[in-house]
Amino acid sequence: MPTATMKTDYYEILSIERTASDGEIKTAYRKLAMQFHPDRNPNNPEAEEKFKECSEAYQILSDPDKRAAYDRYGHAGVNGASGFGGGSPFQGGDLNDIFGDLFGEMFNMGGGNRRATRQQRGRDLKFDMKLEFEEAVFGVEREITIRRAEACEDCRGTGSAAGKQPETCQQCGGRGQIRSQQGFFSVARTCPICSGTGSVIRTPCTTCKGDSRVTREHKILVKVPAGVETDTRIRYSGEGEAGRFGGPAGDFYVVLDVKAHKFFERDGDDLHCVIPISFPQAALGTDLELETLDGVETIKVPEGTQSGREIKLRGKGVPHLNSHGKGDLIVEVRVQTPSKLTRQQKELLKQLSETISIENTPASRGIFSKVKEMFS
């Protein structure tokens, strides 16, 4: 006589306590089913057997009545209920209940009764816009023309000729998927007749050729706010391509590229520039006129100004984007030494140097940094 084989305890198979909740049973099963699933372990009979074991354990313990009978009488109380010996336990709707949320995305098995839809969201569109420096600072409005797919007016976005409607695909029953049983689990694949849409256009619209959309030119008024920078993106919701077969439209993005200024450099909302001055101007002080973005401004250079000193003009920078106020304009003055002098100029400088005494003793750079900070 053949020797009887003792079946492993279902709780032991799932590595859970006998007091485990429904949620704990489901979590334990998910983990094991993912580990031993045949698609992850091809040509591995041991893994396939473990997969059958944990699936059988889950089928019993996830059912309150079967679990109660098992807890009271053991395997004898559910003999024949597990069904692996005489047929698959995954028949009818049980497969979706057990595997729908676990393998739905991996094997496209979830939602067996869900009907497909032909609707598809339209593509997002992007437009690169170049701006002059001043346009980015103060803002600008421009009308641009783009080409995009729009819903066909003749068929109203259905893709079918006037008076006709898409028909439910007979091959998949409108689900967009064909299911087949392979062993003890089900596999779904995209329907080859309707390409997963669930419906078939028998009489296509002659204007859009059944696509539901046509390409047209479209004008958009782009409003660039003051204070934008390079790579700023402006989004226009729903202004992208129309969705297919009545699906939602995509979005339209304007990506900005700001040209450099001839002498202003931008740092956040502050502007920087450098103005050269002569030694007499630095020593005696002077007034300079600077053409800013807001007009001519007078800059007062105090006497004894050191080269590299920064003079700040508050509120003369870039407007804060979508807010009040502006950054500052920071002017650095640099004392410029002439490379060529006339004989008279040299003589005058010699006379001046005799009246000025400076010790040319080496010092750390920190001292000069502190001097610069004192005059900033």
Score class of each variant (00 low, 15 high):
A4V: 14
T5S: 15
T19S: 14
D22K: 10
G23S: 14
Y29F: 15
Y29V: 00
K31I: 07
L32P: 05
A33V: 00
P38Q: 07
N41M: 08
K50P: 03
K50R: 13
A69D: 11
A69M: 11
F90D: 01
G93E: 15
G111M: 03
G112D: 03
R114T: 09
Q119H: 10
R121H: 03
K126F: 15
K126H: 15
A151C: 03
D154E: 13
K164S: 01
C169S: 07
Q171P: 00
G176D: 04
I178D: 02
G196V: 02
I201Y: 08
T206L: 06
K209W: 04
V222R: 02
E229Y: 05
F245N: 14
F252R: 04
F252C: 07
Y253K: 07
V254I: 14
V254S: 04
V255W: 01
V258E: 00
K259M: 06
V274Q: 11
A282W: 07
G285L: 00
L290Y: 15
T292Y: 08
Q306I: 09
I311D: 01
K316S: 07
E332M: 10
V333P: 02
V335K: 03
S339K: 13
T342G: 14
R343S: 09
L349A: 14
I356W: 04
E359K: 10
S369V: 12
V371N: 05
K372W: 07
